[in-house]
């Protein structure tokens, strides 16, 4: 893994949203949506960001494609296997030629497609914007893309309302692929879909990655999906990365108490696994007014005085496994794969 090429490197990324009050709309405080995160993504892999709502995972992904202007930090992105460019600090004009290399897939397949545009207009628009002026050429490319995502090319002149949720998500994927991007940022791409359709889209994403050598930044809250599709995972809590590791490692031996609780909270589709869950007390901390020390300490069952006073740094405990917890090395936390349950029954 180490000698692989890094496609994306995020350093100290911060995004604060001001809270404005009063007649002059003066900023009285900040929502620290993303509060200094670091990670890197290798070319060709799927990197997952998981966390609960409000943890900043969507804000982070939007900053990376520069849909939002980060408050601070660097986002290094490699274009065409060449030099790394810091996209966080480029101007609009400088950014324009780079945008085609990073594309997004959105969560809601209903609101992310313009109902007044045909599939040809929707999928062809990125081509038009990027200078493919010839209509013939665009039609050809859109037909090719439709076939690639498993839709019939005859659908070209139809409108999105004629399609089901899963098919619409395929349209969104085709649009993202139109410009041959190297990085796809997928923000909860399957969470709005029905279970049986979800599997089809996950399969499509895996297949496309293999065929086109794509790199995915996969933002999700569903840990089973993340486990299935991601190579490496970062767990976020209140704007910070609390743990990052290879997927297998993270699920087998989590080192952060929050990861442990998160893993244990996932209901498994198997009634024989009704285990004792770790029920976290209280609520996710308010990113406008985070607690002192480690943000997780008020809900952490292992918290000691040190956790209340000092903020832990993200430190590597094993190669490729970084944790931000004062007690990472002394705690023995339970993973989900301790007792591998064979795939029984459903065959």
């Amino acid at each position: 893994m180490e000698n692989e090429q890094v496609l994306l490197e995020v350093k100290g990324l911060r995004k604060f949203f001001p809270i404005r009050k009063g007649f002059w709309q003066r900023a009285v405080g900040h929502v620290r949506a993303v509060d200094g995160i670091d990670f890197h993504v290798y070319k060709g892999e799927t990197f997952g960001i998981v966390g609960e709502s409000g943890c900043g995972k969507t804000t982070a992904s939007r900053c990376i494609v520069r849909a939002l202007q980060p408050t601070a930090g660097e986002i290094h992105f490699r274009v065409n296997d060449g030099e790394m460019t810091d996209v966080a600090n480029l101007s609009r004009d400088e950014l324009q030629p780079l945008r085609r290399h990073m594309q997004m897939i959105f969560q809601d397949p209903f609101s992310s497609l313009n109902p007044r545009m045909t599939l040809f207009d929707i999928i062809g628009e990125p081509l038009l914007v990027n200078g493919v002026a010839d209509r013939r050429q665009r039609i050809e490319r859109v037909e090719e893309l439709l076939a690639l995502v498993g839709l019939r090319p005859e659908f070209l002149q139809r409108f999105p309302h004629a399609f089901s949720g899963g098919q619409r998500q395929r349209i969104g994927i085709a649009r993202a692929l139109a410009l041959n991007p190297s990085l796809i940022v997928a923000d909860e791409p399957v969470s709005a879909l029905d279970v049986s359709v979800q599997a089809q889209i996950l399969n499509l994403l895996l297949e496309l990655q293999e065929r086109l050598g794509l790199t995915y930044l996969f933002v999700a809250h569903d840990l089973s999906v993340v486990k299935h599709i991601c190579d490496r995972v970062a767990v976020m809590y209140v704007g910070r990365v609390v743990e990052t590791a290879q997927t297998q490692q993270l699920f087998e031996s989590p080192k952060h108490p929050y990861t442990e609780a998160l893993l244990s909270a996932v209901p498994q589709p198997d009634p024989t696994l009704r285990s004792q869950r770790i029920i976290l007390e209280g609520e996710v901390a308010d990113p406008a007014n985070p607690p002192s020390g480690c943000y997780f300490h008020p809900r952490c069952r292992y918290a000691v005085d040190l956790c209340r006073e000092q903020t832990p740094e993200l430190e590597e405990v094993e190669p490729g496994h970084a944790v931000s917890c004062h007690r990472a090395l002394e705690l023995d936390l339970a993973g989900t794969l301790d007792a591998p349950i064979p795939q029984t029954a459903h065959s």
């Binding site: 279970v195 979800q198 599997a199 996950l202 895996l206 999906v225 486990k227 299935h228 997927t247 699920f251």
Partner: peptide, 16 residues
């Protein structure tokens, strides 16, 4: 079968 599980093999095509 189509639900990815924490215990299933990752990165394989799911039966749909």
């Amino acid at each position: 079968r189509s639900i990815p599980s924490i215990h299933s093999t990752p990165k394989v095509q799911l039966p749909t």
